[in-house]
Amino acid sequence: MSYDMWIILTGALVGAACGIIGTFLVLRKMAMIADAISHTVLLGIVGAFLVSQTLEGPFMLIGAVITGLLTTFFIQVLDSSGVQTDAAIGVVFTALFSVGVILVSLFARNVHLDVDHVLMGDITFIPFHTIEWNGMTLGPKAFWLIAVVLVIDIVFITVMYKELKITSFDPAMAFALGLPVTALHYLFMSMVSITTVASFDSVGAILVVAMLIVPPSTAYLLTDRLLFMILYSAAIGAASAVIGYYIAQWLNVSIAGSMASTTGILFLLAFLFAPQHGIIAKRLARRLSVTES
């Protein structure tokens, strides 16, 4: 497959995986926790590197899950001790991110781990790091990583669909039914962390946040059904990646940045023109009802 194709495919998978997981983030009003995790994952990667001295996939995933859970845990602790949620998120992620940056600058200077890369990703170089098996080249590592994670995400959502739905919609009811609400919360946040780190290597923190939040928000404006919201969100995420890639090629600018901008453009379109929840539709409906009466 061509060089371009791998980049587009990887981007699309990132969009789909983040779109699926992000749907529940938005519904649980935890969008900014995604922002937090996407920053603190840096600490996980540095930690994993300091422990294992490699930047191999499995170590990074483990490091990411640990910091993701740690971030969730700290935020939860602050939150349940009466700190406003938004402030709790702000304090935790800036602190952990700072520790990550400090560790990088003290111990991991010469590694391929500069903070620039963490924020903006390096999707352009994805095709150069390939997996070989029995002498065959199977394609870029990043692609396989996100592909595997996407499958895990899909399985997770399918299996836990009704539990995720009820804990997102009415946690008190879920608790009264005897569901382990807290355990599910942490399990879900682990999935967010895995997805973040798998996307991260190719597209960087900012695009991960964009992909986790913006396509689900767009889908939210387009449908009133949860299942459709998940599907739309995945599709919008993938489409943003593809469109973003071509725009980036055309203007010769950052691919990740362009993909993020595209999610924004699609959101704006939905915000204005969505059939039922768009601004224009709402204005029209109001005008119609006024003229009718």
Partner: peptide, 17 residues
Amino acid sequence: DWDFPTNALDVVLMGRY
């Protein structure tokens, strides 16, 4: 959250979980 993407039947179905 009343804006949750779910309909009345769905909510009632949650009682069966």
